[in-house]
C-alpha cells in the first residue's frame, strides 16, 4: 500500500483521511465517554446513513448529483444531533431514551429511502463497513475543514467542556452556558461521525470514538493524558487497519475495530499483570 500510496490518488485520500479521523474521533470520544454518551455516536451514525441513502436516492431519481452523499449524510447527522439535544431536554429523567429514538428513526428512514430507490448502483456495503477506496479529493478537503473546526473549538472551549463533563452543577454556578456548550458539542460529534464514516462505516464509527478511550482510561492519569493515549491507540489502529484491510481485501472498518479490541485486551491484561507483580513485590517486602 505504501508503494501504491503515491501512485493512486484514492489511496492517498483514504490514508490522509485515516490519519485525520484517527485524531479527531478519539479526541471527541474522550468527552463522549466521560459524559456517558457512548451510544450517541451510534445513534447519529445511523441518522447519517439515512442522509447518505437520501443523497443516493436523489442522485438516482434526478440523474444528477445535486448533493453528494457525503454532504447529505453530514446534513442529516447535524439535524439528528439537534433533535438528540431536544429530546434529552424533554426526557430529563431518561436522557438515554433519545438514543433508541434517533437510532431507530435513522434506520427506519434509511430502509425507506433504499427501497424507494429500488436499490443503488453504489455499493451500500462500503457505507456500512467502510472502504479503502471511497474518499474523493472533494471529501478529503471537507474532512480537513471539519478537523480544523473540531480542533479549534476543543482548543478554545476545553476548560468549559471539561468542567461540564465533570460537574454540571458547578459549571452552571460558574456561569457557563451549559445548553450552548452541549449544543456545540453534539454538533461537533455529528461532524466527526460524518467525516469518519467512509473509512470505518456506519456500523463501526462509534467504535473508533469509544474503544481507544476505553483502553486509554485504564492507564492514563488525568484527562489530558486520557486524550493523548486515546489518540495514539486510535491512530495506530487506523494506520495498521487500513494497510491490512487493503492487502487482505477486507473493509477497513472490520480490521480497524478488531485491532482496537486487541489493543484494549492487551492493555487490560498488561495492567493486571503489572498490578499482580507489584502486589507480590509489596508482599515480599512487608514479609
Amino acid at each position: 500500500m505504501l508503494m501504491n500510496l503515491f501512485e493512486y490518488e484514492f489511496l492517498r485520500n483514504t490514508f490522509f483521511t485515516g490519519i485525520i479521523i484517527g485524531i479527531i474521533a478519539p479526541l471527541l470520544g474522550a468527552f463522549i465517554v466521560v459524559r456517558r454518551l457512548s451510544l450517541i455516536a451510534d445513534a447519529l451514525s445511523h441518522v447519517t446513513l439515512a442522509g447518505i441513502a437520501f443523497g443516493l436516492l436523489l442522485e438516482k431519481k434526478t440523474g444528477a448529483i445535486l448533493i453528494t452523499p457525503f454532504y447529505s449524510g453530514l446534513g442529516f447527522s447535524i439535524i439528528g444531533s439537534v433533535i438528540v439535544e431536544r429530546l434529552r431536554r424533554v426526557y430529563t429523567a431518561f436522557q438515554e431514551l433519545a438514543i433508541p429514538i434517533i437510532l431507530s428513526g435513522g434506520v427506519g428512514l434509511s430502509v425507506i429511502f433504499i427501497s424507494v430507490a429500488n436499490g443503488f448502483n453504489t455499493d451500500l456495503y462500503s457505507y456500512l463497513f467502510g472502504s479503502v477506496s471511497a474518499v474523493s479529493r472533494q471529501d478529503l478537503y471537507s474532512i480537513i475543514i471539519i478537523a480544523v473546526i473540531v480542533c479549534t473549538v476543543i482548543f478554545f472551549l476545553y476548560k468549559e467542556l471539561f468542567l461540564l463533563s465533570f460537574d454540571e452543577e458547578q459549571a452552571v454556578v460558574t456561569g457557563i452556558h451549559a445548553k450552548r456548550i452541549h449544543f456545540i458539542f453534539i454538533v461537533l460529534t455529528a461532524l466527526v461521525i460524518a467525516a469518519s464514516i467512509r473509512i470505518v462505516g456506519v456500523l463501526l464509527v462509534s467504535a473508533l470514538m469509544t474503544l481507544p478511550v476505553a483502553a486509554s482510561i485504564r492507564i492514563a492519569k488525568g484527562f489530558k493524558q486520557t486524550i493523548i493515549y486515546a489518540i495514539i491507540y486510535g491512530e495506530t489502529a487506523v494506520i495498521f487497519g487500513l494497510v491490512s484491510g487493503y492487502y487482505l481485501e477486507i473493509p477497513p472498518g472490520g480490521t480497524i475495530v478488531m485491532l482496537l479490541i486487541l489493543l484494549l485486551i492487551a492493555t487490560i491484561v498488561t495492567k493486571k499483570v503489572i498490578a499482580n507483580i507489584n502486589s507480590r513485590k509489596h508482599r515480599l517486602k512487608t514479609g
Binding site: 466521560v34 476548560k159 460558574t174 457557563i176 484527562f223
Partner: peptide, 15 residues
C-alpha cells in the same frame, strides 16, 4: 472520571 487533582483544581478558574 479520569481527572488529576491538578485538573480538578484548575476547573475553579473557569469563570
Amino acid at each position: 472520571f479520569p481527572a488529576t487533582v491538578e485538573e480538578v483544581v484548575t476547573m475553579g478558574l473557569t469563570s
